[in-house]
Structure formats: C-alpha cells, structure tokens
Design a protein around this nucleic acid. Structure first.
Lengths: 212, 212
DNA sequence: TAGATTGTTAATCGATTAACAATC
DNA sequence: TAGATTGTTAATCGATTAACAATC
C-alpha cells in the first residue's frame, strides 16, 4: 500500500527532471540547486523541491542536489533500474517505427516481439525482432515475460486484443489506438498516446494564436 | 485578444468530447444530456457543462445537447473545419509512419511533404507523398502554405531545424524529438509528443501497481 | 403546466507558490 | 561560524464538483 498517493501531475514531471539531470550528468555537472535547475527548466524551485520530497529528501541543505545521485534515484522511482519487456501488437508503420526506435533500450525498455495478422509479415524481422502471427500470442506469453504490450492497431480490434493480452498475464498497455480501452480487469495499467488528440490541441492553439 | 484565457486542461479534454460525440453521431443518436455523456465518459456532468460553457451555450434546458450541432461546434473550436498542411522533417520510421496514417486527413490534417538529409530517400514517395532533401525546404515553403511541421529527427538537430522552419514562416511545431525546443521566436506554438516520457510514466505506474 | 436539464454561481478540493525554520 | 539551500508548513491560486435558479 502506497503511504500517500502521488498525483499523476507530479509523475508526469519526473521524466523531464530525469532528462535534464541526465544532460547535466553528461555535461559533468556534479551538483545543482533547485534554483539553478528551476531556471534551466522554466519551473519554480518550489515545485521542484515539493515534487522531489514526495519521494524522499534527496538534497542537502546548503549544498543542493548531487546530480548523479538524484538522476539515479529518479531512475529508480520511474522503474528504469529494471528491464521491461515489450511486445508490439500491430506491425504496421507505427509498430515497426517503435521497434526501430533504439533509444528505448537505454531506459530499460526492450521490444522482444511484434505481432500482426497479416501473413505477408510472418517471420519477418524488424531490427532483428521477429514478427509473429497473432495466434502465436498465447504460446509466446507462456515462454516469455511480457511486461508491456504496445497497441498499434485499428481501434475496432483494440478492446478484444487488449482483454486477450490481460488474460495472458500482461498488466500494462501502451495504447496508441484512438479509443478508450474497456478492460474487464481493473488492475491493468494503461497509458494512452492519442496522436490525433495531440494534433487537435496543437490546432486549437494555432487558431487561438492567429486570433490574438 | 482572447476574452478570458481558457486553460490547457480544458483544451486537452475537448478532443475526447469530440471523439465521443462523433461515435454517438455515427450511432444515430440525436441528442444527449450532460448526465448521459458523463456516464459514458467517466467524468462528471458538471465538468462537461463547465468545459463547454467556456466556449458558449451549446445546449438547451430541458433537452440537452444536439449531438450533430455540438460535434460540429467542437470541431470548429479545435480548428478542424479548416485544412492544416503538415510537413514532416525526418523521413525515418516514425516520419513515414505519420505519413502513412490516413486518419489525420479525416480531421483536416494533410501531410504535403517529407524532408530528410539522407540522399537514398530523395524523391521517394510515401503514400504518394514525396520525400524532399532538407536543402529544398526554403523553396518548398515559398511555394506551399505550411501550417505545421512535425519534427521526427535526432534531438541534436531539432533546435536548428526548428528555428529554420520558423524563419520560413512555420508557426506551429509538432515535436517528437526528445528535447524541449529553444525557439528564438516566442509566438510559435509547440506541442510535444515525448514517447519516452510516456513510457516512463507507464513504467512508474507498473511498479506502483506491483507494490500495492 | 410540469419535468428535465442547462448555464452559472458558490463551495470544495487539490496543486502550486511563497515563506521560513532547520541544518548542512 | 556565516552562508547557502533544503525540507516543510502556510498561503494562494486554479480547477473541479455541487447546488440551484433560469428556462426550454
């Protein structure tokens, strides 16, 4: 049981802290104060300290934060100290793009297989990762630990496949289908990436900007 | 000058309303109350009414909302009643995946060109859309109206290219590079899609879920 | 007219910012 | 020790929810 629930607003900011600290680390910076960091990131120092103190006191009065230590601690908070095996359902353009994106591995996210129903793709390799047929899913899940399933398939099929994944022990879904998944099991973690929604928000801001 | 600034929290919810109303419209539903909609969407009816009333009174007491009318009005608010021309900078896997994604056109977003620096890709077509070399960018922007540039390129190049786009009259950037763009011109609208951050948030929730 | 449901004001809740005592 | 900067409490601000009068 988590002591106090930490809001998703805070969680959403953690990867950005992680990114900035990684850059500081690469730049050889040893320590940083919440004030310096706040100027770089365009947020308040107060927010940085509040956010971090949700997870513990990582700093030291009069000194600030040790960059390397804080970077590693945030990595642990985000679960980046462990490997997450991912399968991608739908080996279309987006699915293959995800498979080709090498950088995820730097953070411990390893794509171990793609699945599709198109027989033309059977056994094809994408950056060495094999494309399986969807009916091999059950066998695959028995033989491999699957932590995350990325859904890049038409929205009509998303619900059925998602529930099938959950039945096979997958507890986290990275959903690119333009639909709110209706899952029977409430313990599943879902993270949506709705590209159309993102474009629409952009579009709203374009029109607003134009009218100001 | 916008009368009162509408918060991005509200804007972020609009595409979701639009999606649900579109589905209702397709299902032949003529009218809906905030209460019915709230149950379908898992939000409060109060929030729906508050959100919509930021933009005007679209409903009618005792009746509810006309689905078709509200759908169209939200479409206008989001700028979906006009065409947005998009160019994609970086014709790698993700860039090509975006170009192949037909559905954006349904919402008025039309990809009119891809750009890359890899000569192997020169003149290649992706779903009929041509890949140009990056040095053709200036000429292209003179001959075509470009509303949005999608950046799918390595983060080291993102800032330079983004500022070059802005110099050529592009006022909106859909940024897939894992970096906060530093733009010289402050009037540019930026919408970030940070897939790594999204994965990290998912990862946090997986670990949290496991520990509860 | 009576019933339904909006638009809107008021109350509550949560998140952000400011302030400062604790402490390295 | 004096100076710097955190961790944390208190104050403010904004967003969400509840309530209800207006009205179709």
């Amino acid at each position: 049981m988590g002591e106090k629930e930490i809001s998703q607003a805070v969680i959403r900011r953690m990867p950005r802290y992680y990114r900035y600290l990684g850059e500081l680390l690469d730049a050889g910076v040893e320590r940083i104060s919440s004030n310096d960091l706040s100027r770089r990131m365009n947020v308040t120092a107060s927010q940085i300290r509040q956010d971090l103190n949700n997870f513990g006191g990582f700093g030291q009065q009069g000194y600030g934060y040790n960059v390397k230590y804080l970077y590693e601690e945030i990595g642990k908070i985000l679960g980046l100290d462990q490997t997450h095996n991912i399968i991608v359902i739908g080996a279309g353009n987006l699915g293959q793009a995800l498979a080709n994106y090498v950088k995820f591995e730097k953070f411990g996210f390893v794509i171990i297989g793609l699945f599709d129903i198109n027989p033309v793709l059977e056994q094809k390799l994408v950056r060495g990762i094999r494309i399986y047929m969807l009916d091999e899913l059950e066998a695959f899940c028995k033989e491999n630990r699957v932590d995350i399933a990325a859904l890049t398939l038409p929205k009509k099929k998303a619900d059925a496949v998602a529930n099938r994944l959950v039945d096979n022990g997958v507890h986290a879904i990275w959903n690119f289908a333009h639909v709110d998944l209706e899952l029977l099991n409430k313990d599943v973690v879902v993270e949506n990436v709705h590209l159309s929604d993102s474009l629409m928000q952009l579009s709203y801001n374009i029109v607003k900007n134009r009218d100001d």
